[in-house]
Amino acid sequence: MSTLLAAAAEAQGVPRWGIFVDVEGAVSGFITAVILTVLTWYFVTAARAGRPMPEIRKLAGLDAIDEAIGRATEMGRSVFLANRTAGVGNVHSFALWGYMGYVAKLCAQYDTHFVNIAGDYLAAAVNEEVIKQAYLEAGRPDAFKPDTVRYVPGDQWAWTSAAAGMLKRERPAATMWIGYFYAESMTLSEVGAQIGAIQIAATTNTAQLPFFIASCDYTLIGEEEYAAGAYLSKEPMLTGTIVAEDVGKVIVAIVVLLGVIAQLVSPEANFVSKMLQF
């Protein structure tokens, strides 16, 4: 998105088709967005009309959330859920709030101490609202404590030091690292492993996935991170968006296959490549 924004800002010359910015992939990107929107609209409408939706496949990492909270409850220890980078305009934050609402609600029901470490001051305010709402839904608004949401400035290593320190001191039984992480992923997940916490991570950053996979008990890879809201709520309309996403994946696979064939047949006249660049 930011690349496109930068490219669009620098775009010069004659607009494509008279209305599109002169940026590579502007028209094809628009068509892709329209196709995905129509697909999502179709499946959401189908779900609203009561038509059966396919079930989302089992995601061990999401199923393990209940187990992790149960363990924390038995041990009388807390549950930590954290993200450093995500601000309120970041799609990772919206994914995070899906987890947060579910985990906070369960923690409220089981009277387990829940802690969120936020790295963005705007997100921290929203986190507080999401958690308060979850406590309210669980019928335990009084269980919300002022130290549930802990805002630590999002400077990479300052935040990591603070989070690692909290882990060492408070020894939570479960930790959840949700969203986009950088090099701090290694420190956080290893400290979590040292204190013996059940660890669940979800990220789309392929560079950090190996670290989470090495140190965490469960790792949600790529788009699995975003599926949590739909998976945990089991709401058919949200499931519809996941189905649309999967259909989109099939279309992408077909386009990739066509591109490979076109490249093998005639690299200069690869119509798929030209179409995507338009």
Binding site: T37, G98, Y226, T241, E245
Partner: peptide, 22 residues
């Protein structure tokens, strides 16, 4: 590719008002 589609689906859920936790 999966992450992009997942992110796009999440954004659509927000635009359509289906994702309301925030």
């Amino acid at each position: 590719v999966g992450s992009f589609l997942g992110g796009f689906a999440t954004q659509l859920r927000i635009f359509l008002g289906l994702e309301r936790r925030h």
